[in-house]
Amino acid sequence: MLWPATLLGAAAGLALASIPGALLGCLLGQVLDRRLRLHGWANLRERLGWRPAPTDDDLLFLMLGRLAKSNGRVLQSHIQQARSEMQRLGLNVDAQRRAIDAFARGKTARDNLRVPLQRQRERAEALLRACWRMAWVDGRVAPDEHELILLWGKWLGWETAALERLNEEYAPKRSQQPAPSGGSYQQALQLLGVSESSEPEQIKRAYRRLLSRHHPDKLAGSGASAERIREATETTRQLHQAYALIRQRRGMR
């Protein structure tokens, strides 16, 4: 086990006062290591506020967490959308755990994402699509969300016009009926094709089956029109909100 403060104290003491200084520095460093519970260099970096650069897998969920929190409050639909992205990527249990941690870390807005994003230009479209999906999941893109995505798009090398065209693919149609929200419990049940007597597992299976069938990602790479992608995005949003309402009413986890 490496004791960073002990090593640094010994090195500083040796430089300043030879062997006696090294011994004194080692002793003081050991006290500091124990008091701060520094068991290695990683612990010391954390104490100093240094954060490692996010991995490729973490970056997306850092961005999604930042977007979800940017308007002040993380909604259940934001959490469901993050879970949908995990399913879309086929993450295993360990990878999902890391993604959840990254999502929570992203909500703190402490990470500077400029350099990591500038290194991800090959993945730019996939990252930006996921961001627009998250931004639209509650039916509207707040100014802070819009500004963030435009900034990230700039760091990824995208022009504003191209970003807005991508945004339009996920914007819901204004003429469509709004998704069930505050009191439309029966509409939510009807949308998922379940009843009040359905078991929680039946409801979950119905939700996941419909989400898989209508997710816009299935259309994005198939040459589908922007109109069809918008319709699929709106349907996905409605499914998220319906499921969230049923879970809340039924006390489901």
Results as ranks from 00 to 15, higher is better:
residue 78 H to S: 09
residue 218 K to H: 13
residue 229 I to H: 04
residue 177 Q to H: 10
residue 27 L to S: 14
residue 230 R to K: 11
residue 203 I to Q: 02
residue 185 Y to E: 13
residue 20 P to Q: 11
residue 140 R to G: 03
residue 152 W to F: 14
residue 9 G to Y: 09
residue 55 T to Q: 13
residue 121 R to C: 02
residue 240 H to Y: 12
residue 153 G to C: 05
residue 216 P to H: 06
residue 141 V to P: 06
residue 72 G to Y: 15
residue 225 S to Q: 05
residue 146 H to Y: 15
residue 49 G to F: 01
residue 56 D to Q: 14
residue 172 P to M: 10
residue 57 D to Y: 05
residue 76 Q to F: 04
residue 82 A to I: 10
residue 110 R to H: 13
residue 156 L to E: 10
residue 186 Q to R: 13
residue 161 A to H: 08
residue 165 R to A: 09
residue 96 Q to Y: 05
residue 106 G to Y: 11
residue 145 E to T: 01
residue 170 Y to C: 03
residue 116 P to M: 08
residue 89 L to K: 14
residue 65 G to I: 14
residue 99 A to Y: 07
residue 56 D to I: 03
residue 62 L to C: 09
residue 138 D to K: 08
residue 49 G to S: 08
residue 217 D to I: 01
residue 138 D to P: 03
residue 6 T to Y: 06
residue 248 Q to I: 01
residue 16 L to C: 10
residue 75 L to W: 14
residue 196 E to H: 06
residue 195 S to V: 05
residue 57 D to T: 05
residue 137 V to T: 15
residue 117 L to R: 06
residue 13 G to M: 07
residue 225 S to P: 01
residue 238 Q to A: 14
residue 76 Q to D: 15
residue 213 R to I: 01
residue 14 L to Q: 08
residue 241 Q to I: 00
residue 6 T to L: 10
residue 94 D to I: 12
residue 11 A to I: 04
residue 228 R to M: 10
residue 161 A to D: 12
residue 87 Q to R: 15
residue 163 L to Y: 10
residue 146 H to V: 00
residue 97 R to E: 14
residue 126 A to G: 03
residue 144 D to C: 02
residue 83 R to P: 00
residue 95 A to R: 15
residue 131 C to A: 15
residue 97 R to T: 14
residue 3 W to V: 00
residue 2 L to W: 07
residue 37 R to E: 07
residue 194 V to F: 04
residue 122 E to D: 12
residue 86 M to I: 07
residue 72 G to N: 13
residue 196 E to Y: 02
residue 162 A to W: 03
residue 115 V to W: 04
residue 84 S to P: 00
residue 167 N to L: 05
residue 88 R to G: 09
residue 6 T to G: 00
residue 129 R to D: 03
residue 136 W to I: 01
residue 162 A to L: 12
residue 188 A to W: 08
residue 128 L to R: 07
residue 226 A to T: 09
residue 117 L to W: 03
residue 243 Y to W: 12
residue 202 Q to K: 09
residue 66 R to F: 06
residue 214 H to C: 01
residue 127 L to Q: 07
residue 78 H to P: 05
residue 155 W to L: 06
residue 20 P to C: 08
residue 173 K to Y: 01
residue 53 A to M: 14
residue 242 A to D: 03
residue 198 S to R: 06
residue 142 A to V: 07
residue 78 H to I: 07
residue 226 A to Q: 13
residue 68 A to G: 04
residue 206 A to R: 15
residue 46 E to I: 02
residue 57 D to N: 13
residue 198 S to T: 03
residue 136 W to N: 02
residue 85 E to M: 15
residue 222 S to W: 08
residue 231 E to F: 10
residue 239 L to C: 04
residue 80 Q to D: 15
residue 48 L to D: 07
residue 42 A to V: 10
residue 84 S to F: 08
residue 165 R to G: 01
residue 166 L to H: 09
residue 1 M to Y: 08
residue 236 T to I: 08
residue 124 A to G: 09
residue 38 L to N: 04
residue 148 L to G: 00
residue 169 E to Y: 02
residue 164 E to N: 05
residue 149 I to H: 06
residue 83 R to G: 12
residue 157 G to P: 00
residue 138 D to Y: 02
residue 123 R to H: 15
residue 1 M to P: 11
residue 141 V to L: 11
residue 198 S to Y: 10
residue 135 A to Y: 07
residue 141 V to D: 05
residue 216 P to Q: 04
residue 212 S to G: 06
residue 71 N to Y: 06
residue 116 P to L: 05
residue 13 G to D: 06
residue 73 R to V: 11
residue 102 A to H: 09
residue 58 D to W: 02
residue 252 M to L: 15
residue 57 D to P: 01
residue 39 H to Q: 10
